[in-house]
């Protein structure tokens, strides 16, 4: 198993995701329409509520994190959903590929699309609301985006696992799961205002820490110590768990035959 053939497999999934995405009009919405609507409506709301630059920054950071996580997460979910929709799930599992190839390839495309969405939103918020996303510096921004993409990987892997456990009924989780993120990770508010025990629960989500770290550059005192470190450690832990869950779901599918039902 050479490095070349490893990368070849990752590349295969990446290229497939790209080609499929490029040929679907719906994806224009994912890349341009929803992100634009999102950042403009939240931005305009900050104007209406007459919020100062700090509060505006708080909300825009949240909005952009949510959009970025969502679009990248969709790609990871599509790794399986494309096959479910084209009724060809079994071909993936006939080929000598592992979950890591599928996940990594689609995640890379997700990062590309996530950066596109982020860039578009950053441009819009700078142009319309005078908000400078690059103020915290390249390193902080890079860490923030990486944190978002790691959360996407976790969510995407879990969506795949759910689809393999519950069939197409679970498809909707690809769009619904991100709402959990919205509630628990403090997209539009600091998690400290959440009632107990939800507030404590928020501490279990890596994105909570990533947002906390990035917002500290806009004058918000961090709620956690070493938020970035915590965010990355939790992300790594959850990616491991989600990978394990997906592998277990695949094994179960091979036993029950759901893999084939999904191909009918």
């Amino acid at each position: 198993m050479s490095w070349r053939s490893e990368m070849g497999r990752v590349y295969a999934f990446a290229k497939r995701n790209l080609l499929m995405a490029a040929r679907n009009v719906f994806f224009v919405f994912e890349l341009a329409f929803w992100p634009t609507v999102g950042v403009l409506s939240i931005g305009l709301m900050t104007r209406f509520l007459d919020l100062g630059p700090e509060m505006t920054a708080f909300l825009l950071v949240g909005t952009m994190a949510l959009s970025t996580v969502q679009v990248c997460q969709l790609d990871v979910s599509y790794a399986l959903l494309f096959d479910v929709w084209s009724k060809s799930v079994k071909h993936q599992f006939l080929a000598p590929v592992e979950i890591r190839h599928m996940a990594l390839g689609s995640w890379l495309v997700g990062i590309g699309r996530g950066l596109t969405v982020f860039g578009l939103q950053a441009l819009l918020s700078w142009w319309a609301f005078d908000f400078d996303f690059f103020e915290p510096g390249v390193l902080a921004l890079g860490a923030f985006l990486l944190g978002c993409f790691l959360t996407s990987a976790v969510v995407g892997l879990l969506v795949c696992a759910l689809v393999l456990l519950f069939g197409t009924r679970a498809e909707v989780s690809a769009w619904a799961t991100v709402n959990l993120v919205m509630v628990f990770c403090g997209i539009y508010y600091p998690v400290s205002i959440l009632p107990e025990p939800v507030s404590t629960l928020a501490g279990a989500f890596p994105l909570t820490y990533v947002l906390d770290a990035f917002r500290s550059h806009y004058g918000f005192a961090p709620e956690f110590s070493h938020p970035l470190l915590m965010g990355f450690i939790l992300s790594a832990l959850y990616i491991g768990l989600a990978h394990w869950a997906l592998a277990a779901a695949v094994t179960r599918c091979r036993r029950t035959g759901l893999l084939l039902k999904l191909s009918e």
Binding site: S5, K15, R16, L19, M20, S86, S88, K90, P96, E264
Partner: peptide, 30 residues
């Protein structure tokens, strides 16, 4: 080692061309 053509197996990716389909699977098999 195996190539399997399974019943009802008409499903290849419709949104890819015939050639793209084959190249994709060629990559999967390294």
């Amino acid at each position: 080692r195996i190539g399997a053509l399974l019943a009802g197996d008409r499903a290849v990716y419709r949104r890819l061309t015939g050639r793209e389909n084959l190249l994709y699977f060629a990559d999967l098999y390294g």
